[in-house]
Amino acid sequence: MTFWQVDLRRHAEERFLAVARPVPAGAVIRDADVRVVRVANPSGLALVGADRRDEVVGRTAAVPLAVGSLVVSSQVGPPAWPAAGQAVIAVPVKVGRAPAGLTKGARVVVLVAPAAGADQSGATPPAGQTAAEARRAVATVVSARAGADQAGGQVVTLLLAAGEAEAVASTSGDVALVQLGPGQ
């Protein structure tokens, strides 16, 4: 235990950049988006030192930057999110069609059912997919917020395979989200 304590004292004065407010992938990082924090970094992570602030401010966030996270050099540069083969879509979700307290990182099954009173055949799915595939997909929640035009509804932003995103976006109907448990 003595070695760890000595190492912490040796690294205790290191200053690094942390994210002060959320920055979406592809957005320009502004001065107010980062702050200086003191952190011991004995593991040698590629954290961006406070003295390199000018290498971050004015550049593009390659991935979404979450508040409180430490800035790593690979997070700055050309957008790398969503990754190749993935896409991000936003879907309106009516009251009662998603679990309460849905949070970022949750894995969900996206189901699109024909809207009440709509033609049961729904929209034509993209080439190479059946109607059943166009109405079901597995995704990761990026964000969930109250819907501006829906009383009690929400808009949920999802990360999923590009083909599935296209299928969900091209299918008309009501969206329901089913949250999956760990490892599903």
Rank of each mutant, 00 (worst) to 15 (best):
A162Q: 08
L160N: 03
V141P: 09
Q154E: 14
R135E: 07
S172P: 13
G152R: 04
L158E: 02
V155C: 00
A137N: 06
L158A: 07
V142G: 11
E164P: 00
R145E: 15
L159Q: 04
A139H: 01
E164S: 13
T171H: 02
G163C: 02
E164T: 08
A139K: 00
A146W: 04
V142E: 13
E166I: 07
R136G: 09
A167P: 09
A162R: 11
A139V: 02
V156D: 06
R136N: 06
A162N: 03
V142F: 01
G152P: 08
L158Y: 02
V155D: 10
E166S: 13
S172D: 13
G163V: 02
V155A: 04
R135C: 07
T171G: 07
A161N: 12
A146I: 05
R135G: 02
S170V: 00
V138E: 11
T171E: 06
A137D: 05
R135P: 08
A169N: 06
A148V: 13
E164W: 00
S170L: 13
A165K: 03
R145V: 15
A148F: 14
E166A: 14
A165G: 07
V168Q: 03
V141T: 12
G147C: 10
V155K: 00
A151M: 04
A161C: 01
Q150I: 15
Q154P: 11
A144Y: 12
V138A: 07
A137H: 09
V156T: 03
G147P: 05
S143Y: 11
Q154F: 01
V168P: 09
A161H: 12
A151C: 00
V156Y: 05
V141M: 08
A151E: 10
A144F: 13
L160I: 09
T157C: 09
G152I: 07
A146Y: 03
S172W: 13
T157V: 14
V156R: 03
A151L: 12
S143R: 14
L158G: 06
V156E: 04
E164K: 11
Q150F: 08
S170W: 09
D149Q: 13
G163F: 00
R145T: 14
T140R: 10
A148H: 12
A161M: 06
A148Q: 15
R135H: 08
S170Y: 02
V138N: 01
G163P: 01
L160K: 06
G153C: 05
